[in-house]
Design a protein around this nucleic acid. Structure first.
Length: 430
RNA sequence: GCGGUCGUAGUGUAGUGGCCUAGCACAGCGCUCUGUGGCAGCGCUAGCGGGAGUUCGAAUCUCCUCGAUCGCCCCA
């Protein structure tokens, strides 16, 4: 029989986060946890799976999103369900389902975990990726917009990013946006011939998107285009002005980007994107982006509830940190400083017991019980960068002591067995 | 979903139709050295992404497929 060797591989666009990369992930999570806890955002867990409707309703039928880019499939029972492509609609669903409008408003929550999009994978765009999402529901005040931008900025600053750029814009609401769209479409129609092929199509499907087309010829056309900020209704205008005043007060390095828009309809008023510029001024993809979604709660069947949030792209941040070789926790601080080496059956049994005694004292100790030769154990200890090796063999076991080897100097000494834990405790401290 | 480029042990690579039973380096494991690490020597493990085809002969050419990457669409 010939055995067919099937090579297993991960699904397209799905990555492992290997042990060596965990410190990055951990650092990012810690930063987010610290920030959210300081600002009193509470953790919420929402399911990875939801009815597809939760997301498709939110996204609307404006784009390819539903049919092309959601990870959706049918259950055995025939329900159309979907792996979450982002957190916001799930959080909103939860807010509605649990009657959180009865809680003191605003409800400030944050969630974190894997999300899924059925895109063609690209750098910084994978089918499974980690995101954190901060949401403030039931708050119409511009101060919350400012606070959320501040928090996003804080997280990135904590992580060591130095050239953070914040772009903000306001895209109005149901009052003024339809009106603005008309003006915009009117303008672009008059210049139709100068638009790229895609934008001629966008003119019908999603005219706001023409504003961030990268084509040279569209750039020129849009330079003369009407800007959202000039066509906001009174309320939106006042709101945006106040948001900017907060940002000024907070001394955040923001710029207004009149071309910044969102693809989905539920967004209202403030939108922002935060990215990191490289030394040569190149901008990496957005590391965090968000804005107001005053219409979403109602859209999903709840009361009319203003809300604002941000999605923080953990995977992207991680990738960039690794690319820039940014610092994580110092390595030596992580690993144990003591290695327990054993020789012979009896000593091995006893050293497993000793290992537990160290554990009781919460002193980290490395071991390699599966190796027998002292040589390979010392070699292992060396690779781990451990300073102290406790050698426990036949001789030691019989006479009730243990040999301590200082890997830096090579000096060895003997410690009686009942004093080992205490003595090592002192060594590790110093 | 569309287009370009790419795919050799864990990693980095050599190899451009027969000198390939696929070479090298690093890593891993082991031995020299059954109670002493870092050095050295020796050895072992492990690979042409997968499948079809062309050919006397394929890592090398063709097609399909899977994956990666870059760009487009879309972007929550």
């Amino acid at each position: 029989m010939t055995e067919k060797k099937v090579k297993l591989q991960s699904l397209s666009g799905m990555n492992d986060v290997l042990p060596k990369d965990q410190p990055f992930l951990k650092k990012i999570q810690k930063s987010i946890e610290g920030t959210t806890s300081y600002y009193n955002f509470q953790k919420i867990e929402v399911p990875v799976l939801e009815y597809a409707e939760v997301f498709s309703k939110a996204a609307g039928d404006t784009s390819d999103i539903v049919e092309k880019e959601m990870y959706s499939f049918r259950t055995k029972g025939g329900d159309l369900i979907c792996l979450r492509p982002e957190f916001t609609p799930g959080v909103v669903r939860s807010y509605i389902e649990h009657g959180m409008h009865n809680l003191p408003q605003p409800v400030k929550v944050w969630a974190s975990g894997p999300c899924f999009r059925h895109d063609r994978p690209q750098k910084g765009r994978y089918r499974q990726f980690f995101q954190a999402s901060l949401e403030a529901l039931g708050d119409k005040s511009p101060s919350i917009d400012g606070q959320i931008i501040q928090m996003s900025y804080d997280v990135l600053k904590d992580l060591g990013f130095k050239n953070i750029s914040i772009q903000v814009n306001s895209i109005g609401d149901n009052e003024c946006r339809p009106y603005f769209k008309k003006i915009l479409v009117g303008y672009f129609k008059s210049k139709r011939g100068s638009l790229c092929h895609d934008c001629q199509r966008r003119l019908k499907e999603n005219p706001l998107r023409i504003l961030d087309c990268k084509e040279e010829k569209c750039q020129q056309v849009k330079a003369g285009a009407p800007q959202t900020v000039d066509h906001l209704c009174q309320l939106c205008h006042a709101h945006f002005k106040q948001v900017l005043e907060f940002l000024d007060e907070l001394e955040l390095p923001y710029v207004i980007n009149p071309y910044l828009v969102r693809g989905l309809d539920y967004y209202t008023k403030t939108v922002f994107e935060i990215s990191e510029k490289s030394e040569i001024g190149m901008v990496y993809g957005a590391l965090a982006s968000g804005g107001r979604y005053d219409g979403l709660v109602k859209l999903l069947g709840g009361r009319d509830t203003p809300a604002c949030g941000v999605g923080i792209g953990i995977s992207r941040i991680m990738e960039l940190m690794m690319e820039k070789e940014m610092k994580t926790e110092k390595k030596p601080a992580e690993g144990p400083k003591i290695f327990l080496a054993q020789l012979g059956e009896m000593a091995k049994r006893k050293s497993m017991k000793l290992f537990e005694e160290f554990r009781d004292e919460k002193i980290p100790v490395a071991e390699s019980f599966s190796k027998d030769s002292l040589r390979s154990q010392l070699s292992a200890a060396n690779k781990m960068g451990v300073r102290w090796v406790l050698i426990f063999g036949q001789r030691e076991a019989l006479e009730g002591f243990i040999t301590l080897r200082d890997m830096e100097s090579g000096a060895q000494s003997e410690i009686t067995l009942d004093k080992v834990v205490q003595e090592m405790k002192n060594k590790v401290k110093s």
